[in-house]
Computed example of a mutant assay.
Amino acid sequence: MRLLHMMLRVGDLERSIAFYTEVLGMDLLRRKEYPSGRFTLAFLGYGPEENNTVLELTHNWDTSSYNLGAGYGHIALGVSNINETCEMIRTKGGKIVREPGAMKHGTTVIAFVEDPDGYKIELIQQKS
């Protein structure tokens, strides 16, 4: 078995696709509308779905926003230079909600960015 994708419901699909592609550097891998169900699915990631876990954005046409679920944690992205990554995200209009630093009770360096719907994305400094 392998993890295929993670799904988020988003209120504004175009805004979310722009954030994940322009700010976080993902590629839009595929997109499909389902008129009879009144929803659109968009799959984004850092490589082909055949080899990589991807993010599925679900846009229900009649819903413009969601309450964030109490059980949702975050999406985690590994980065080679967390300080440069945070600066790049800021220059592209992204919102850093936790500056880079060691995690509580540990030494791993992390930061958090927030997407347009308020979902948290953790950035983790990868060891060289």
Rank of each mutant, 00 (worst) to 15 (best):
R2C: 07
L3K: 06
M6G: 10
M6S: 12
M6I: 09
M7E: 15
M7P: 01
M7K: 01
L8V: 03
L8K: 02
L8E: 08
R9V: 00
V10M: 09
G11K: 00
G11E: 01
G11H: 00
D12V: 01
L13H: 08
L13V: 01
E14K: 05
E14Q: 13
E14S: 14
R15T: 06
R15N: 06
I17G: 05
F19L: 08
Y20M: 02
Y20A: 05
T21W: 09
E22D: 08
V23W: 00
L24M: 11
L24P: 07
L24W: 05
L24Y: 00
M26D: 13
M26A: 07
D27A: 11
D27S: 14
L28Q: 12
L28M: 13
R30W: 12
E33L: 10
E33D: 15
Y34N: 13
Y34F: 15
P35M: 03
P35W: 08
P35G: 11
S36H: 13
S36V: 05
G37N: 05
F39K: 09
L41A: 06
F43L: 13
L44H: 07
G45P: 07
Y46S: 10
G47K: 15
N52H: 12
N52Q: 14
N52P: 09
V54W: 03
L55E: 07
E56H: 02
E56P: 00
E56K: 04
T58R: 05
H59V: 04
H59K: 07
N60T: 01
D62R: 10
S65H: 07
S65N: 14
Y66M: 03
N67H: 11
N67K: 11
G69P: 11
A70I: 13
H74V: 06
H74A: 05
H74I: 06
A76P: 02
V79F: 03
N81R: 03
E84T: 12
T85Q: 15
T85E: 15
E87A: 08
E87H: 13
M88V: 08
M88S: 14
I89F: 05
K92N: 14
G93D: 14
I96G: 10
V97M: 12
R98Q: 15
E99G: 02
G101I: 06
A102E: 15
A102F: 06
G106N: 10
T108Y: 04
V109H: 08
V109D: 06
I110N: 02
I110Y: 00
I110D: 00
A111Y: 03
F112E: 15
D115M: 01
G118C: 00
G118H: 06
I121N: 04
I121L: 11
E122Q: 08
E122Y: 01
Q125L: 00
K127A: 14
S128K: 13
S128H: 12
